[in-house]
Write a protein that binds this DNA or RNA. Structure first.
Lengths: 348, 348
DNA sequence: GGCCGTGCAGCAAGCGCTTTCTATCAACGA
DNA sequence: TCGTTGATAGAAAGCGCTTGCTGCACGGCC
């Protein structure tokens, strides 16, 4: 059968307690004893029983990372950065932790279930990334769960998600609103007045904030906004493609398309091109996030760069207690406008 | 303190054993009793203690997914597909399992450490994705670990990775060699004779197989190959950019660039464009994988489509024991040549 | 010389759950 | 009416580890 602590103890001629202490290194053990134990561990190829250890110590080395869509680099980049700080193998942290990336698909139910699963595993920390789904029942349920997790000693960090009120969760929030505003201001500054907006899924905070920023800019510039110029969709390329065709149908004279994110913007570009429109001569296109492929689009995409990796790394450190949480438990992370080739002055 | 099974039992006026049986549903319990128990669970907001349960039952509901780079959609797509079949919340499988995505960064050491961590957690299954690192010590160490995992009852599946000899691991291998060969044959068929090849990291199986397929095609067509026409790099855009400049320096007259994957190809496109070369009029470019953004490149990328999602889903099902493993434990998954706008006849 | 502080190691009591074995009880056929 | 059987429920023994407390030896100190 599998090797247990007791087997190692027997081989090293010490008590199980001593083996445990050698392995955990949290109690003085004579050097000679330690060596004997380590030798036995090695010879027997002993691997600690995680569940047993977690049970006895009432702690776990699991850290959960919740993402909306793991196939989307937006989340992949953040998850990667978080994980690199979590420790895990190769991380700088001593204790080896298992970072668990969970794919919620953007569904609040699955999010909740994953949180329960993590609670069940007595996770050491949980990082929730990306926009939340709005709506009282969901928000309340998630908040309640986060509170319970925190009560049980799990550190909870939100990365790229608005703060969860009445919750001990630390929030690193992206300034989606400000970024979107800057972007649209840029377009307005170029002379655009007829802008189409392709939003994300309707009930997401990210969607709402970006849209609000866009509208703020329009309002500030005195550009009146036709609600028909906003189309809702998903955060993917396909959605951008379809929404753009729809926008073009509604207003063939629009001169700019602002997309909810870069993938959507790429889909928009494809649709415009197929419609015989040049970018940016006929129609300007702007994205959001500045994912790695955006600079490679032709023309390269004007967008708002979000420091995904930096934010993720910081969230990871906070989750591990290796960095002070921001004052008030909330920090706003700003984006940076990247003006590139896909936006220009409107056609006359 | 936290609520335990005993608390629930007390409240429902039954024994802990009965509560356990209700929760696991693997033993007859009278309907009335079950209801009483479930009510108590609900009222107390009881959450099972995972470690304790795993310890007592000697099983765990953790499933590990190892990926080389979680920020790369290649792995994100596979991981997403695997996870969707693993069960997890929302999955069709009844038992709720926690899918753990582990980011190895392509390092065999970290891979090994993650495997140990999963072994420690007594994972129910492990899926390793993507190419392996070649080299006897590593391969042997990984094989030994896989054997040990399998011995301990963990199901081991390789997805998009060559079979691990002397190992009970089920392998779903991509036909990288065949795909690469087809791709290069396509280019040769167009009339290209001076092809540059941008390979991935030198010690990876994926790199080697794709390169071999490329060379097979060249050899079969009687095109003699200059080793200077192959440049090694990483599997990212940057690498493609730099490698292309290098290739151009070595042979300004080349008419086609074959890249190790789509990201690399995109970088190659950028470099060519900056060098004043048109695609495909001056130089053809081909990628591999057919990631979602590849069709949006301008011109859209000729590449080999790998059924990442399908393969991942299948790997997930096999890992869960919901699908028969292929005969011999090995299946080859073929790619499909996607001819698009980035390849054309060579300039004269 | 007796005492005590110090440094290490062991004992043993759990951690919260699962599961085997046993007990109970009602129904039922003989 | 009684033994038998089937369906449930409970008692209790762990699962493999951690850790508070105890035990012991050694050396320095008064």
């Amino acid at each position: 059968m599998t090797v247990t602590l007791a087997d190692v103890a027997a081989r090293a001629q010490v008590s199980p307690a001593t083996v445990s202490r050698v392995l955990n290194g949290n109690y003085p053990v004579a050097a000679s004893t330690r060596e004997r134990v380590l030798k036995a561990v090695d010879e027997l190829d002993y691997v600690l029983n995680g569940p047993a250890s977690a049970l006895a110590a009432a702690t776990s080395d699991l850290v959960g990372i919740l993402v909306n869509d793991i196939a989307d680099p937006f989340f992949g980049i953040m998850a990667s950065a978080i994980q690199s700080e979590i420790g895990g193998p190769g991380g700088r942290a001593g204790g080896e932790r298992l970072a668990v990336v969970c794919n919620t698909g953007g569904s609040p139910e699955r999010e909740l279930t994953y949180l329960t699963l993590l609670q069940r595993q007595r996770a050491a920390a949980v990082v929730l990334t990306g926009g939340a789904v709005e709506g009282v029942p969901h928000a309340a349920a998630i908040a309640a769960k986060l509170r319970k997790l925190a009560d049980a000693g799990t550190r909870v960090v939100l990365c790229g998600r608005p703060p969860a009120p009445d919750t001990p969760a630390i929030a690193l929030t992206f300034d989606n609103r400000g970024g979107a505003r800057q972007l649209t201001e840029h377009l307005i500054g170029l002379g655009h007045r007829r802008l189409g907006y392709i939003a994300g899924p309707k009930e997401r905070t990210t969607t709402r904030h970006r849209l609000e920023g866009h509208r703020d800019a329009l309002a500030a510039a005195g550009v009146e906004e036709d609600p028909r110029c906003t189309v809702y969709g998903r955060y993917d390329r396909r959605s951008g493609y379809e929404a753009t065709l729809e926008l073009l149908r509604r207003d063939p004279a629009l001169t700019a398309v602002v997309a909810a994110n870069d993938s959507v913007a790429l889909g928009a570009c494809a649709a415009l091109r197929e419609s015989g429109l040049r970018i940016p001569e006929d129609v300007s296109v702007a994205g959001f996030d500045d994912l790695p492929f955006s600079v490679d689009a032709v023309p390269s995409l004007t967008t708002v760069r979000l420091p995904l990796a930096e934010a993720g790394a910081r969230a990871g450190r906070i989750a591990m207690g290796r960095e002070e949480p921001p004052p008030g438990g909330i920090a706003t992370v700003r984006g940076e406008l990247m003006v590139r080739g896909s936006t220009g002055i409107p056609r006359t």
